[in-house]
Design a protein around this nucleic acid. Structure first.
Lengths: 116, 116
DNA sequence: AAAACACATCATTAAGTAGTGATATGACAA
DNA sequence: TTGTCATATCACTACTTAATGATGTGTTTT
């Protein structure tokens, strides 16, 4: 049915954006924009806890945004698709114009950071 | 400071994506991709409740994704920037390849719909 | 001015989700 | 095969947020 395929597409799109809608996941993706990294390296690069990273990577992997590959006892993660980098780049350009509005939008704050 | 501006940029990016990470807001944006609409028209096009739409529009407006303009007793909304349409288009292309993964990702389901 | 219309705001409720520590699993080294 | 390293999983807590109905605000019509 057309209606339900529209709806499905909408949910897929929302789900993809939810994958990008969190600072921890975004910072993971940012570290992977330049090269593949294993989990320890991501932990070191982002400063986030290992279990936290692992949970987010699970999400990103399930959603197809990253893929993993075992090498020795490390598991390396990389962006699945170059267009994810393009997408991030395009949002940076949009933000450079719209940033004021986004900055002022207080409806959906980033969750306050717990102490580490 | 470089570190904190990086962090700020990350939060802005996440906030922008959060604006897109909800099926209701996405369906509002979809209806605005072709032409500006007033709130009643958006309500009719999406089937969502007026107060709900209004809340989401407030968010989208605060975040700079849409702008509003009063005409008579209607208020018309439009996408602020053409690149928002581009962004949505690009995600559709990515999804056409990555859709299986996103579809299978059950970690962050769309909220279950209440009856209308 | 009063009624009707269009939209925004607000408090509340129900649900989703990020972060954490503890623990489990799996791979390699000794 | 035992220990160690690397990563994943889990239960739990605290927080965030979407949807709703009721109500408020502003604008036009009569």
């Amino acid at each position: 049915m057309l209606l339900s395929s529209k709806k499905l597409e909408l949910e897929l799109k929302a789900k993809l954006f939810r994958g990008l809608a969190d600072t921890s996941r975004l910072s993971i993706l940012e570290t992977l924009r330049t090269q593949p990294l294993n989990v320890s390296e991501i932990v070191h690069a982002t400063g986030l806890r290992q279990s936290n990273i692992s949970n987010h990577l699970g999400c990103l992997r399930d959603c197809g945004l990253v893929t993993s590959e075992q090498r020795g006892r490390h598991i390396y993660y990389r962006l699945t698709d170059d267009r994810i980098d393009d997408l991030l780049h395009m949002t940076e350009e949009i933000l450079s114009d719209v940033a004021n509005g986004v900055y002022q939008c207080t409806r959906y704050e980033s969750p306050t950071e717990p102490y580490q």
